[in-house]
Design a binder for these strands. Structure first.
Lengths: 201, 201, 201, 201
DNA sequence: AATGAATGAGAGTTCATTCAT
DNA sequence: TATGAATGAACTCTCATTCAT
């Protein structure tokens, strides 16, 4: 039900197959995260997953294919992690703060995601655009609704949504590099305050 | 330890050598920009530059070395292009707007830079950090001075500088993808207004 | 040592088994005919036959084994198709004409056979020699008997039989390539006349 | 000047390069002759030629490419060997006899050619057709001229040329298998007589 | 008897780098 | 300094065959 809806029928039919596929995906996340797409090797992935090299091709057609599967897997997990935090927020600006905080936390716990998402643009441009476009659209949608409710300035436009996403992505993906010791909440607070004043009605 | 200073040993002595080195660098910008670091090949670079494969090593120690040389070359060019625009601005917020606009224009005219800078983080983490840290530091410095002059809020901190840089980088590097038809000035205006309200004293 | 006799151990016991074996053989004829021995894959054969990969080894010991089974299957079918035509001919030279015509017709209707027979020499030299030697011997036998009856020259020898077979095989196997539009009967006529009187003025 | 007139500029520029290319071609003839196209391996070819694996790709783009180069190399050599024998013959039928004899001799001395030519049809159909079509056309041309001179029957047609070629190819390529001990001249004599007068009593 | 996951040796090919001329 | 041939390790991918269920 993930990458391309049935692709070519590489879907495992047995429980054992399901476990092997999962192991490969997890191993791939680590390998791609550590070495990047081009330096990651399929033989390293299978070694990490504890299966024979040839078994890889029982589940994925190619190196590209597993990368794509991984990206959509991770997008979904990020979304599933961030969405509840946003939904629980009292108003639009609190939602943005909660979303950033939740994203920072997720990345901190899954450092591999950082490089994988960054490379997705070049390895799989189509899914990259889909990913960012849908994120931006979600933010824009929230802002427009908030404007209608009078929570934020009435003249918000899409550029604001992209700017917010840009800050979040840049801060989120580089947070480990930038300031590992700083609690994520603190950063989220500074940015939330900045957003509030920039976007307030 | 040689990257920045100019390679100390491989510096060409003759005029002809200087031209060949420049041709390699230009060819490398195109090749890395089109294919990315790992898929770019030295033999393609030399072919584009019109020199023999073996000649490459007269000027650069390795594939990494020419990439590093290229990244610092380009950082310098971006800086040289953006700096005057910033210096000419009447106040701190106008400077940020001018900087973003100028950066958007530069990227539009040098599309290769987009991918090269994006990859620099993984190919050459050291120079990547140097590059972003110095940019962030420049922004932070401007904001602190502006705060001292009362042009922006007194409680600005480094997180603001990183957020501003994040928006700029994300918008700048993806501007082609995002909204090719939109004049860069318009985007810069929206963002400038957002910044003004967010950072105003 | 098992190829000809019918495999002795892998013979199916049930009706269902018999059908599966037949399906594999038919699928193999198409697959080997289309791609040649080395590029044909067992998994493609089982897919075409509609059975699971593993089931293949219930019926054949190896890829070589099914190829051998196929070659003897097809030799027998060619023989069964051509023999009646030859038997019905009034004299030796008419028999050769009828044999060629019948062979051309068979190949036209079973194009796969073309490549399979051509490759048999390399995949399974033993059965290849058997196949051609017995064909040549049959022709030689007919010619010797015809000579005894005074229908053909008295000094015929084995080389003549091989020459006749060479023409037939070359024309027959390449007929599709060479002259698809020409009726097989016409070609058979030209060759029959040639056999009768040669090229001299 | 051989395979495809300049292909992609893999032509060696130095004397050493020329020698290496020749060594690869000779090694390939043996390897393809012994094992056939698919079982021949590039690493075996380079081992036989005494060069490193990677050097192969300095001279040929692929396994297919060297096979094609080899086939045209060998066609040319066969032609160069057979042509003088044919030219020296007193009349058309003597020419056919001389051509067959010369071909049988060539194949006996270069056994590798046997399998290579036989496989060319499947590996490189285009050059296969070119090869046989041009051979058949040469024979047909000789026969038509001989008919004009009154040396052979006036009603010769292309089918005769194909039949002659079929006999020659079949006898020539299988002669080693069939009758290693028999002098080629003897076979050529039998066939020449057959060509002249056919099989009728 | 039937299934499909698992195996691993081996293939063709690429490419950064070295070296003799 | 310039050239281009030489190198070999590393890579992705295939497939006949085996095995547990």
């Amino acid at each position: 039900m993930a990458e391309a809806a049935g692709a070519e029928d590489k879907t495992p039919r047995t429980e054992r197959g399901r476990r092997t596929r999962r192991a490969l995906l997890d191993a791939a996340a680590l390998e791609f995260g550590e070495h990047g797409f081009h330096l990651a090797s399929i033989s390293a992935i299978t070694r990490r997953a504890g299966v024979a090299l040839g078994s890889f091709y029982t589940y994925f057609d190619s190196k590209d294919a597993i990368f794509r599967a991984l990206v959509s897997d991770m997008s979904a997990r990020v979304r599933d992690h961030v969405a509840p935090a946003i939904r629980g927020a009292p108003d639009a600006l609190a939602a943005e703060r909660a979303g950033l905080d939740s994203f920072l936390g997720f990345v901190r716990d899954h450092k591999e995601i950082y490089r994988i998402i960054d490379e997705a643009e070049f390895v799989d441009p189509a899914s990259f655009r889909r990913h960012y476009a849908s994120t931006a659209e979600r933010i824009a949608h929230r802002l427009r609704e908030a404007a209608a409710r009078g929570e934020v300035r009435a003249d918000v436009e899409d550029a604001h949504a992209w700017a917010v996403m840009g800050m979040n992505v840049f801060l989120g993906l580089r947070y480990g590099v930038w300031a590992e010791d700083r609690p994520t909440g603190q950063v989220a607070d500074v940015i939330a305050d900045f957003l509030r004043r920039g976007l307030a009605a």
